[in-house]
């Protein structure tokens, strides 16, 4: 009995460990590659232990950049990506909270029409409407600006729907108690609704930050100047075609650096998730 138990305990763990290894190994290799010099990597015999060039490679990546195609240091690009991802995430959450609040708590003409229009935009991600959106941004002279980079990505049906669903679970009595307690609509929003939504907001922030950070197509189109580039595009640009020599150690360092902020956000927010799950309160 005990034997079988152990086996049953062991098997799922083994599968999980294999899964982790499969996911983590390429990341490990990328990290190792970022600590060797270009020659060692390109001759195909890179060892699987950290090399001696860690500080040098990362210093060059962050503050100087590659010697060829992208001339900006990765530090600038990380900052660009960070501004873009934060603006998108915070903007999406703010606008979705307010629109969900309007749709759930106010009776105005064409309320359901407004809701369905928001709903329908689920079918229109940036890739579908890319040409008209580009045209608008270009006509507004927003190319190569953070506004052009972020505003078209901010409107979000997903977050609006999520918050709407959450708001509908908040008991009506809380609204009524607030009314009797003399709190107007916005006071109710900030004093009661927002504190109650904090875990949904955290969840949305994680999802939307990563969404914003990983944007590729839109920044590729909107940004032409080197100092406006985002890190995801930079990785692609660093890996140059056959004849030129790709500086793999820098490309790998950039990839590792590009991974850090989303990982950081997930790790930090995960604690809030758990807290939110334990203290479910409505």
């Amino acid at each position: 009995m005990v034997q079988r138990r152990r086996l049953l305990d062991f098997l799922p763990h083994l599968i999980l460990m294999l899964g982790v290894a499969i996911v983590a190994f390429p990341v490990y290799v990328a990290f190792i590659a970022s600590t060797w010099d270009a020659a060692t990597i390109s001759n195909g015999s890179m060892p699987l232990r950290p090399g001696p060039h860690f500080a040098e490679n990362y210093y060059r990546t962050i503050f100087i950049g590659t010697s060829s195609s992208t001339r900006e240091p990765v530090g600038t690009m990380m900052l660009n990506s960070l501004i873009m991802a934060l603006t998108i995430a915070i903007g999406k959450i703010a606008i979705s909270l307010i629109s969900a609040f309007a749709v759930v708590y106010f009776r105005f003409p064409f309320r359901m029409t407004a809701f369905w229009i928001i709903f329908v935009t689920l079918m229109l991600p940036v890739e579908v409407r890319i040409f008209p959106t580009y045209k608008i941004v270009a006509d507004l002279n927003l190319l190569d600006t953070f506004a052009g980079l972020t505003i078209p990505l901010i409107a979000s049906a997903t977050a609006t729907l999520l918050f709407r669903q959450f708001f509908m679970t908040v008991p009506d009595e809380l609204v009524e108690a607030s009314k009797i307690d003399g709190a107007g609509p916005m006071k109710f929003f900030f004093d009661t609704l927002l504190p109650l939504s904090i875990t949904s907001v955290a969840a949305m922030f994680v999802i939307q930050f990563i969404y914003g950070w990983n944007q590729y197509l839109w920044p590729l189109l909107i940004t032409t100047k080197d100092n406006m580039q985002t890190i995801v595009i930079a990785i692609k640009k660093m890996i140059v075609t056959q004849d030129a020599l790709t500086e793999w150690q820098l490309a790998m360092a950039t990839a590792i650096l590009a991974m850090l902020p989303p990982v950081f956000v997930v790790v930090v927010m995960q604690r809030l998730f758990v807290k939110g799950l334990v203290e479910t309160e409505k």
Partner: peptide, 10 residues
């Protein structure tokens, strides 16, 4: 006073 008390949970 409401049936489900309607206290502000937070």
């Amino acid at each position: 006073v409401f049936q489900n008390y309607a206290l502000y949970p937070h």
